[in-house]
Each structure stands twice: as C-alpha cells, then as structure tokens.
C-alpha cells in the first residue's frame, strides 16, 4: 500500500544540502563508523544512526539537558554538538552505563531514592551526575545542585535526585 518502497526512512535518506562526512566515534567503548551530513547533530547521530535513543530531545537548543552525554568525559548537550565534531572522539551515553546487566551505583541510587518519575530527563540527569562524581567523588550539596542545574526536570522537584547523587558521593550505596 505504500506509494513507494522506502529505501531508508532516516533523515539522511534524502539528499540533504552540504557534504556528507564519515564519522568514526567510540560510543560506550565500541568503535562506530557512520555517515553524517554536515548539519547533523551528535544527538541525531546517536538516535538515528546508532539507535541509541536514551538521550532525548527536550528542546533542541541546549536549554533542558535531556540530551546530555559525555563527550571525551565531559558532559555536553548532544543537541549543540555536531556529529562531525565528535569524529575520533569518545562518547558515553546512558545505554553504556550498566555493565553486563549490572546497574551502576548511581543508577541504583536513582531508583532507590525515588529520583525517577516520568523518566524523560533521567538519562541526561544521570550523565550530568556521573560526570560530576567522576571529577569530584564526594561533592557537597551545592556542587550537586550546580552540576545538574542545566538539566530540567518537571516531575520530581529535584530533591530526590540530589539525595540520590549525594548518597553515592557519601558512599552510602557502596556494597549495597
């Protein structure tokens, strides 16, 4: 019933203006090589080329943090980074955090502390927090507030998110 056989339903399937680049990027420890047009964002690249849909688009203009990923270890809004800028870089997304089905301390703390409601901001929130904890393993409340202040959440009122991150920083979750 289709009026044509779709070759590829992704945005890159039709002729886009500008050049197409081959992007090689290490994502969650795995080497990936895909083509991307010049204007494609890292967020689109992850979601549409690699099918990693954990990072969300909440605004598309770097204001909400739902697309936060770690680019060479640093938390960035993937909607503000071009895919070409990530060439030869290392990217971590929420999908790569749990190893062998084992949730990270932070992921467990988010569940145990009630830091998740609708879940749409959760991926970005986790990576902003993870980035903080890796550079500052025992952050105080103020530092945590600062670290997630670029991640909007409309459900939780943030308190349980702060508590979850704080608990990991205090090592309360260790061995738990």
């Amino acid at each position: 019933m289709f009026d044509e056989t779709p070759q590829n339903t992704l945005p890159g399937a039709i002729k886009l203006p500008g050049a197409v680049y081959t992007i090689s990027v290490e994502v969650n420890g795995k080497a990936c090589t895909e083509e991307a047009p010049a204007q494609m964002t890292l967020l689109q690249f992850l979601r549409e080329r690699l099918f990693l849909t954990g990072a969300k688009e909440g605004c598309g203009v770097g204001e909400c943090g739902a697309c936060t990923v770690l680019l060479n270890g640093r938390a960035v809004d993937a909607c503000l980074v071009l895919a070409v800028e990530a060439d030869q870089a290392s990217v971590r997304t929420v999908e790569g955090e749990a190893r062998d089905g084992e949730l990270t301390l932070l992921q467990r703390a988010f569940i145990e502390h009630g830091a998740v409601q609708c879940g749409f901001c959760t991926s970005g929130m986790l990576l902003s927090a993870q980035s903080l904890l890796e550079s500052n393993p025992h952050p105080n409340r103020e530092e945590i507030v600062e670290a997630i202040s670029g991640n909007l959440c409309r459900c939780t009122g943030y308190v349980q998110i702060l508590e979850a991150i704080e608990a990991v920083g205090e090592g309360m979750e260790e061995g738990g």
């Binding site: 990693l52 997304t93 999908e95 749990a98 949730l103 992921q107 569940i111 959760t122």
Partner: peptide, 17 residues
C-alpha cells in the same frame, strides 16, 4: 521503588519520542 526504574535509568524505556 518504582517498578519501571530499571528501564528508565538504562535508557531502554521506549517513549513515542
């Protein structure tokens, strides 16, 4: 704790988005 916690913290919860 929420039953859907694991899906949501691993990015595997599928939204229409």
């Amino acid at each position: 704790s929420r039953l859907d916690g694991p899906e949501k913290v691993t990015g595997s919860a599928m939204f229409v988005h």
